[in-house]
Amino acid sequence: MSRTRTGFRWLLAFAYGAAGYLHLARPAPFLAITPPWVPAPDIVIAVTGIAELAGAIGLMIPATRKAAGWGLALYALCVWPANFHHALAHIAIGGETLGWGYHGPRLALQPVIIWWALWAGGVLDWPFRRDRIAYPRP
């Protein structure tokens, strides 16, 4: 199980690292989907990029892994409203409006991403933890 978790941890760290880089290097698509009630969206997008990069790095360091898992899970929860806004407001990115074939799975998988951050960070083992109760042999 540890090899599997390590592989998925690397994958999640890569995904968050790439997303963090994009938030900083090309913020326009992220600004476009930011709900109008978010104050100072340009600063928020930059801070989220930094948070994603910090979380990605934190996942790879054993001493900060659990904190990074918690942080990335909370981050994924906090950006979920932007995903809903993107879907419900029919926001075009680069001149293209994505349909529910994209938005439906994206919105439905956000809890999986939250779980993944917690699992990759070693915060929880569910559903893979085996019962550690030792039963006597007959």
Score class of each variant (00 low, 15 high):
132 R>Y: 04
21 Y>M: 06
113 I>C: 00
31 L>N: 11
66 K>T: 03
20 G>I: 05
4 T>D: 09
37 W>E: 14
115 W>E: 11
74 L>E: 01
53 L>W: 07
46 A>L: 05
50 I>R: 04
47 V>E: 07
62 P>W: 10
37 W>T: 11
124 L>D: 06
71 G>E: 10
6 T>K: 12
86 H>Q: 14
74 L>G: 13
13 A>F: 09
130 R>T: 13
23 H>N: 12
30 F>T: 03
63 A>I: 02
43 I>L: 15
98 L>T: 02
101 G>A: 13
89 A>W: 08
57 I>T: 12
89 A>H: 13
129 R>P: 05
124 L>N: 07
15 A>S: 11
52 E>F: 08
130 R>V: 12
39 P>I: 10
15 A>G: 09
34 T>C: 10
50 I>V: 15
28 A>F: 05
119 W>H: 02
13 A>N: 09
82 A>E: 03
104 G>R: 08
23 H>F: 13
104 G>V: 14
72 L>R: 01
100 W>H: 11
68 A>M: 00
15 A>K: 04
117 A>D: 13
118 L>D: 00
75 Y>F: 15
28 A>V: 13
98 L>Q: 08
10 W>R: 06
136 P>V: 12
27 P>E: 01
6 T>R: 14
76 A>N: 10
59 L>W: 00
123 V>R: 04
43 I>M: 10
38 V>H: 03
17 G>N: 03
12 L>E: 08
51 A>S: 06
38 V>W: 02
127 P>T: 07
104 G>K: 06
26 R>L: 10
41 P>H: 05
82 A>Y: 03
97 T>P: 03
106 R>K: 03
92 A>K: 00
84 F>G: 02
137 R>Q: 15
134 A>D: 14
108 A>L: 14
59 L>K: 00
96 E>P: 00
128 F>E: 04
96 E>C: 01
106 R>V: 00
110 Q>W: 04
120 A>Q: 14
70 W>C: 05
62 P>D: 11
23 H>M: 10
67 A>C: 00
11 L>Y: 07
9 R>N: 06
16 Y>H: 14
29 P>I: 08
74 L>C: 11
137 R>S: 15
83 N>D: 07
46 A>W: 07
50 I>Y: 08
99 G>N: 08
131 D>M: 11
105 P>M: 04
120 A>F: 14
30 F>N: 06
136 P>E: 12
96 E>S: 03
115 W>P: 02
13 A>V: 05
54 A>Y: 07
137 R>Y: 15
53 L>V: 13
41 P>C: 04
55 G>H: 00
114 I>E: 08
61 I>W: 09
60 M>A: 11
40 A>F: 12
64 T>N: 04
30 F>A: 05
132 R>P: 04
76 A>H: 03
85 H>W: 15
27 P>D: 00
136 P>R: 14
113 I>T: 01
97 T>R: 13
75 Y>N: 12
8 F>P: 01
44 V>R: 02
62 P>K: 13
27 P>I: 04
92 A>Y: 03
18 A>I: 09
133 I>L: 12
76 A>P: 00
102 Y>P: 10
74 L>I: 10
20 G>T: 03
105 P>L: 05
35 P>M: 07
7 G>I: 13
116 W>I: 03
41 P>K: 01
93 I>P: 02
77 L>V: 14
47 V>D: 06
67 A>P: 00
25 A>Q: 07
33 I>F: 11
135 Y>L: 15
102 Y>M: 12
69 G>P: 00
70 W>Y: 15
121 G>M: 12
